[in-house]
Design a protein around this nucleic acid. Structure first.
Lengths: 336, 336
DNA sequence: TCATATTAGTAAAACGTTTTAGTGTGGTGA
DNA sequence: TCACCACACTAAAACGTTTTACTAATATGA
């Protein structure tokens, strides 16, 4: 019943040639290795007719490479990551690479484990949205000359390729938009993580306010604890909006904060309108369909994925170790 | 610079034992194989100190199993699938299984390729949301006695385990809700796919209307071509709502149709209220935050993932081939 | 005609494990 | 004293490839 999968040996036997010959043909080295066209055709026919597929595991063991790219994200169910994952998958697939992914939940421990696991599976390259405190693990990969590209989050202490957007510019742009609308009290809702791309969102916001108004009111900045339950965040936001009735604009530094924020406003029956504007980080259907429509800072997903995969492929195809490259794209302010 | 990864041979040499002994220790067979505790401890210390991790590729080649489960979905960027993927990943991880996934875009060809690819990587089990016309490929897997669980979509011609929800009941429930609200002209927006879980949504809708009203008006059913561009769908929906001003309730058979529908309504400036109710298939933040809130038929994601993974693990841990099992869960009507 | 090149292939080692079938030593019971 | 067993461990084959180093036969050039 359970028919064992064919091996190169079966094909060799059937074609009356050595397995070496079959291997050469499989790997397109037949001409180079002086295999006659007669034999090539005969063997290729058998391969096709029998539907033989070489065992990739054996191949990996022998060659040390797997044609697999490891993708490590914080949470695949976050729309930003799943969109990127899908795009990366498509593009990698076209180059004959597969993606194996895992979510870290932002735990350095899990990240460490995952890297080890991927290593023991001989993945060829790593695409990582790194958790904090994983610098050494990534450095270890770099020391082994594995192709690595970080995205979304950057680790400044590492000399590693990166694709992301300029968050200072993006949040400056958003805040400036509010300021040009003559908003007086612009709040920022962010998280209390000391990672570059979060800190930058704060910096851009602050800089815009200083540039336009000269002084900034720190009490309008809410830093929600990272990983806090949604309900708690909503409660905190309600309190902020109650205590600071003077707020006339809010910039949310992540998409889920914006969702919590809109939920809080809904529960308070406070409407978003010209007197109270909102901008969300990362775009999505939620914001487009909201009444009124919510402005958003969209990240260029397609381009991010494109750049990531091309950096990876370049490293993969070059024999020497390439210079690291940092690609900083611009976020787009979508005014609604 | 590039230090080669350690192998079992290095450990054996260092501990002055054979590689067999190290292997036994690694696999917890040390006691059973009469290895002295002195040796066990010595070897374990070296393994730990050197941070040795066995090469999984070699292990797979030798054992034929990989501790990897292949997950094949239509599109990982669809929130339903990414949510399920995340839950499955978590649960599998706890049992020491990894997930490798790919999106099929509902192409039988890609699906075939993927199965081959997974096979050549010796994945231990398959979780599949099957595309149409892939019955033979899945049957081939079953013939090889590979653990397979289908979800979301079912293929009636196959004797295979499945986890999904009762779509007849779900759409009946939704339609009945409308009928109890005395809705007179209930529309159904669905897609023109002849797959069970889509057809069932139509059947449940129709049955409810027949049960309550005796006759059904087929012109209130819109079957959008599968894979059609969003803009086109929106245009089609606008036309439906214009031509049939009598419609006072709409059931959308998928989440993306609901999103297109709400967009269409927004563009027409037609409001959702007590005179025009909407129910969406699959819940999400979009519907919760919409003004007014949109009722939805939620699928029990957590339970679906739980059932899938436990079916897979059961098959994986049992030596014989188990009877196939069909788990049909109930969707929940969330009235807002 | 002989040395050398070219053509058309192949044998065998290697990748890093697991597992089967041993081996050698010391102890025990009769 | 001998047969046997338990104990503690190991040699070597196997998984399915790729690749290096070879061979044997024919062709070429001087």
């Amino acid at each position: 019943m359970t028919t064992k999968a064919l091996s190169i040996k079966d094909i060799a036997k059937k074609a009356n040639v050595s397995i070496t010959t079959v291997s050469f043909i499989l790997n397109g080295k037949a001409v180079e290795k002086n295999i006659s066209t007669a034999v090539i055709e005969r063997v290729e026919k058998i391969i096709k007719d029998d539907g033989f597929k070489p065992n990739q595991v054996a191949r990996s063991l022998r060659t040390g490479s797997s044609k697999i790219i490891g993708l490590i994200v914080e949470d695949i169910s976050n729309p930003f990551f799943s969109a990127i994952a899908r795009l990366i998958e498509d593009k990698a697939y076209k180059k004959d690479y597969k993606i194996i992914y895992s979510s870290t939940e932002n735990h350095p421990g899990k990240m460490k484990e995952l890297i080890n696991l991927f290593k023991s599976r001989q993945v060829d390259a790593y695409i990582i949205s790194p958790a904090l405190g994983t610098e050494q693990d990534i450095q270890a990969l770099l020391d082994e000359h594995k192709p690595v590209v970080l995205f979304d989050r950057f680790l400044p202490s590492l000399d590693v390729s990166y694709v992301g957007i300029d968050h200072i510019e993006a949040s400056y742009k958003a805040t400036e938009h509010f300021l040009k609308l003559k908003k007086k009290n612009i709040a920022l809702v962010t998280i209390d993580l000391e990672v570059e791309q979060i800190v930058n969102r704060y910096d851009g916001y602050k800089q815009a306010i200083l540039d336009y108004k000269g002084n900034q009111n720190e009490s309008l900045v809410l830093k929600v604890p990272f990983g806090q339950e949604k309900e708690e965040t909503i409660a905190q936001l309600k309190e902020l909006f109650k205590e600071h009735a003077e707020i006339d604009a809010v910039l949310f530094a992540t998409n889920y904060l914006a969702i919590s924020g809109l939920t809080a406003l809904k529960e308070m029956e406070k409407v978003v309108d010209t007197d109270f504007s909102v901008i969300a980080y990362d775009d999505g259907d939620v914001f487009k369909l909201h009444t009124p429509q919510i402005s958003a800072l969209g990240q260029p997903l397609e381009e991010i994925a494109e750049r990531i995969i091309s950096l990876i492929l370049m490293q993969l195809s070059s024999k020497e170790v390439l210079k690291t490259e940092r690609v900083i794209l611009s976020g787009e302010l979508i005014v609604r």
